[in-house]
């Protein structure tokens, strides 16, 4: 269903949500927009180019205690708290759909992720303008067909709101000033980086190209790209015993394919020992390996790997050189 809702009514709506203490929304902090818990809806930044850091940290933490154990029992650390995310951009909702493919595959569900996902309401907000590194249009991730409870389109004086779930319908039904509409929301995104399917296809012939060595010469392997990529979810698992050595906890830690020891195995061999191999691997995983396995790109076109690269390495530019 589609409705038009006045901006004032949306503000009242967010007022009520923030009083619940479960609202997470974009906030401007110095020069950065970050997703934070909101106490007062006046803090919310509605007009922002996609945030430098994504909402990944709310679903896959860089350090997460999975369970605590002692001699007799194991206590799983399951997040049961309800959370409402307002203002997530469509590309980032797509990133959750990508993570779902990885972490909610039947029979292999990651219960820690699953519970966080299950208890999260997604109120997405379509972008009004593109950032300099955005290329969502090329990947079809600029809009949403699924993955949201409510989807807001800013139409200037009012919002068009789409409902995408029963929970979303329930929320909308509580609004007083709303009107059903057949209008299509406007689609203002322009001036994006471009990446064609034909260009992506060229990866299939480029594995042995010398472009990888050339382009990776200025890469530090700092992992700025993978750490901020909303669909990079590789992790390491570590046990941390207490000093009595009878109890302790198991911890999941963020990992990065850009680091040399990531492919280190017992005996000391490292499969991707050269920087260029690791550099290439990230791009192949996003645009080929994942496509072969799941039928669509892993990359959601948010451009964060470009925005966050201290060496200004631009994956789209590189793909367009193939």
């Amino acid at each position: 269903m589609k409705y038009t809702v006045s901006k004032n009514e949306v503000k009242n709506f967010l007022d009520k949500l923030s009083a619940s203490g479960n609202l997470i929304a974009p906030v401007r902090e110095n020069s950065l927009v970050k997703f934070k818990k909101i106490a007062n809806p006046d803090e919310i930044e509605f007009d922002y180019i996609n945030s430098k850091y994504s909402i990944k940290k709310y679903f896959l933490l860089d350090k997460e205690v999975l369970f605590e154990y002692d001699k007799d029992s194991i206590k799983e650390n399951i997040e049961e708290k309800q959370r409402i995310f307002f203002g997530i951009r469509p590309c980032d909702v797509h990133s959750l759909l990508v993570m779902d493919k990885l972490l909610l595959e039947e029979g292999m569900e990651d219960i820690y992720y699953k519970n966080k996902r299950k208890n999260s309401l997604i109120f997405a907000l379509k972008c009004s303008k593109s950032g300099e590194n955005c290329f969502c249009r090329s990947l079809g991730t600029d809009d949403l067909k699924e993955g949201y409870d409510l989807l807001f389109y800013d139409e200037g004086n009012y919002y068009i709101v789409k409902t995408g779930s029963e929970k979303g319908d329930n929320f909308i039904s509580k609004l007083e000033e709303k009107q059903e509409t057949e209008d299509e929301p406007s689609d203002p995104l322009e001036n994006q980086k471009k990446l064609s399917q034909d260009q992506i296809e060229k990866l299939r012939e480029s594995f042995n190209s010398d472009i990888w060595k050339k382009e990776s010469a200025i890469c530090f392997s700092c992992a700025g790209c993978t750490t901020t990529c909303p669909t990079c979810g590789c992790f390491d698992v570590k046990d941390d015993p207490d000093l009595d050595f009878e109890s302790g906890k198991r911890i999941r830690l963020d990992a990065s394919c850009q680091l040399k020891n990531y492919t280190g195995v017992a005996g000391g061999h490292v499969f991707r020992d050269e920087r260029s191999k690791r550099f290439k691997h990230r791009i192949y995983h996003k645009f080929k390996y994942f496509v072969d396995q799941y039928g669509s790109e892993m990359c959601i076109g948010c451009g964060r790997c470009i925005t966050n690269c201290p060496a200004n390495i631009d994956m789209v530019k590189i793909l367009n050189k193939l």
């Binding site: 860089d62 350090k63 392997s221 700092c222 901020t228 963020d254 680091l259």
Partner: peptide, 9 residues
């Protein structure tokens, strides 16, 4: 891992 990773977190 480089300091950068933790800086991003």
């Amino acid at each position: 891992n480089p300091v950068c990773m933790e800086c991003r977190y």
